[in-house]
Amino acid sequence: MDQKERIIEQAMQMFVTQGIKSVRMDDIAQQLGVSKRTLYELFGDKEWLLYLAMDRYFEKTRLERSASCAHARNVLEAMFMVLGGVMDNAEVIQRLLNNLRKFYPSVYEKMTREGSAKSRRDLQDMLEKGIADGLFVDTINFDLAISVLYYTASAITVRKDLILPDGMTEREAFVQIISNFFRGIATAKGMQLIDDYLKRYEPAKPEHKLR
């Protein structure tokens, strides 16, 4: 790993763990044992280094999610796993995005624009694979389907404006809502796989004793 790559990697870790606003160029230079002048010569300013570091973090997270579902039994299970990963990482990612939006709006706009495009491509590829495998109907409007997934996920993990029934966790609500979405575009074969996935992975419900 060359010096520039090493700096980006270290800066990424510091921004994620210590906070975007609190990490200064002096802190990064001191941590790496390089001069601040070197940082400015390589990156120009903190904003560009921040962009490169955050781009690496989000791409790394995206690739980790993809790798985690590499052994999924089918594309439907893979989509459940990917969306579950989004749910699991939502708190950290939202904290980073909120700080970017507040303190570095130009970096925020660039990151969200590029990140949204990558995520939409990934989801469309999976939907297309589902159609090819006979799990989804071939009349799907991809733009609408992906927008619904985004809106649903953000309602629970980001905006938190969805009122959940008493005793229901965000994870349970997320799985149920996503399951219902998939049922709406699934073939009979796809429906069977959704039911199979839920039997194996959905959190067990507590038994209610009759009084």
Results as ranks from 00 to 15, higher is better:
residue 2 D to E: 08
residue 4 K to T: 08
residue 14 M to H: 09
residue 16 V to Y: 12
residue 17 T to P: 03
residue 19 G to D: 03
residue 29 A to H: 02
residue 31 Q to G: 00
residue 40 Y to I: 12
residue 41 E to K: 01
residue 43 F to D: 05
residue 45 D to T: 02
residue 48 W to Q: 13
residue 52 L to S: 02
residue 62 R to K: 09
residue 63 L to Q: 15
residue 70 A to M: 13
residue 75 V to S: 09
residue 79 M to K: 08
residue 84 G to A: 08
residue 86 V to R: 13
residue 92 V to T: 14
residue 94 Q to W: 03
residue 94 Q to H: 13
residue 95 R to L: 11
residue 96 L to T: 11
residue 96 L to V: 13
residue 97 L to N: 14
residue 100 L to I: 07
residue 101 R to Q: 15
residue 103 F to E: 10
residue 103 F to W: 15
residue 108 Y to I: 02
residue 108 Y to E: 03
residue 110 K to C: 00
residue 111 M to C: 04
residue 117 A to D: 09
residue 119 S to L: 12
residue 125 D to K: 12
residue 131 I to V: 15
residue 134 G to W: 05
residue 136 F to V: 06
residue 136 F to L: 09
residue 137 V to I: 12
residue 138 D to F: 06
residue 141 N to T: 12
residue 143 D to R: 13
residue 148 V to W: 00
residue 152 T to R: 11
residue 154 S to F: 11
residue 156 I to E: 07
residue 156 I to D: 05
residue 156 I to M: 05
residue 158 V to R: 10
residue 159 R to V: 11
residue 164 L to C: 10
residue 167 G to Q: 08
residue 174 F to E: 08
residue 174 F to T: 09
residue 177 I to Y: 05
residue 180 N to H: 02
residue 182 F to E: 06
residue 183 R to G: 00
residue 183 R to L: 15
residue 194 I to Q: 07
residue 194 I to M: 05
residue 196 D to M: 04
residue 199 K to Q: 05
residue 203 P to E: 01
